[in-house]
Amino acid sequence: LRLEVKLGQGCFGEVWMGTWNGTTRVAIKTLKPGTMSPEAFLQEAQVMKKLRHEKLVQLYAVVSEEPIYIVTEYMSKGSLLDFLKGETGKYLRLPQLVDMAAQIASGMAYVERMNYVHRDLRAANILVGENLVCKVADFGLARLIEDNEYTARQGAKFPIKWTAPEAALYGRFTIKSDVWSFGILLTELTTKGRVPYPGMVNREVLDQVERGYRMPCPPECPESLHDLMCQCWRKEPEERPTFEYLQAFL
């Protein structure tokens, strides 16, 4: 395994491009020591290896001592969030954005069929390849993070704006909380990567959403798509659509 080009840095580690087995181009995620327990990670990795779908980033291998390494397929255009905010983002029109959403829903419909939960679905965790191919990455890892700023769910590192209220408040993460996050991801797509709930801080978002506030229809977004977002944001988790439905609708 060779680490060649550093692609990015996040709160919990770095991402590199490299070569595996001398020939395969891969992405390598390294986790800061202390982010998660190697034992817990190894268990999760076994499950992650079983998830194989064309719209999920394929896991190739893991190094399960500290520092933990995760070796996955390489996606040339990086994260969907950076892609939307970058040069190419300007030229993306609604049909392409909807197609990308459908690809993500397709990957998540598979996660749904496998009775698995992602827990951290957002544009930053979707990767883009050639020809606007989108794949879901980092599934299941969020559960293992041991950082206090994260586990408190009120901490600075927790993605509260993407998280369903029952998950943020009571830790009830299910495929239905993933559906909520998918609704937020749809706003990221239609606004080219704007942060959700602009002008609001995490605490406010939690309070307002509890009181029934939902983001309005983004500019140039059809009402039918906003309606779909609002279905994803129904207060009762069981009233939210399935990913199978979302995939078919898109």
Rank of each mutant, 00 (worst) to 15 (best):
R2K: 10
K6C: 07
Q9D: 05
G10A: 00
G10L: 00
C11L: 04
E14V: 15
V15R: 02
V15M: 03
W16L: 15
W16D: 14
W16M: 15
M17E: 10
T19L: 12
W20V: 14
W20F: 10
T24E: 11
K32Y: 03
K32I: 15
P33I: 10
P33L: 11
M36E: 07
S37Y: 05
S37G: 10
P38N: 15
E39L: 11
E44R: 02
A45D: 02
Q46L: 06
V47Q: 01
M48C: 04
K49V: 03
K49R: 03
K49M: 08
K49F: 02
R52F: 09
E54R: 15
A61K: 13
A61F: 14
S64A: 04
S64R: 05
E65G: 07
E65S: 09
E66P: 13
E66A: 14
P67M: 03
I68V: 07
V71L: 06
V71E: 02
V71H: 02
Y74R: 15
L80G: 13
L80K: 00
F83M: 08
G86T: 10
T88H: 13
L92S: 12
L92Y: 11
P95D: 05
P95K: 10
L97T: 07
V98N: 12
D99H: 14
Q103G: 10
I104V: 09
I104C: 08
S106N: 14
A109M: 15
V111S: 04
V111Y: 00
E112P: 05
N115Y: 12
N115L: 11
Y116I: 15
D120M: 00
R122Y: 02
N125L: 00
N125D: 00
V128W: 05
G129N: 15
E130V: 12
C134Q: 04
K135Q: 13
K135E: 08
F139K: 02
G140V: 02
L144C: 12
N148L: 05
E149M: 09
Y150V: 02
T151K: 05
R153F: 04
Q154K: 06
Q154A: 13
A156D: 06
K157P: 15
F158Y: 02
R172N: 04
F173N: 13
F173V: 09
I175N: 13
K176D: 12
W180Y: 09
F182T: 03
F182R: 00
L185R: 01
T187N: 11
T187A: 08
T187V: 10
T190C: 13
T191S: 09
K192R: 07
R194V: 13
R194S: 10
V195D: 08
V195E: 11
Y197G: 00
P198D: 05
P198H: 08
M200R: 08
V201K: 07
V201A: 13
E210I: 09
R211Q: 09
G212R: 05
G212S: 07
G212Q: 05
R214C: 09
P216C: 08
E220N: 09
E223F: 14
E223Y: 14
H226M: 10
H226T: 08
L228A: 08
C232W: 02
W233H: 06
R234A: 11
P237K: 15
E238T: 10
P241L: 04
T242Y: 14
F243K: 03
L246H: 07
Q247T: 11
L250V: 07
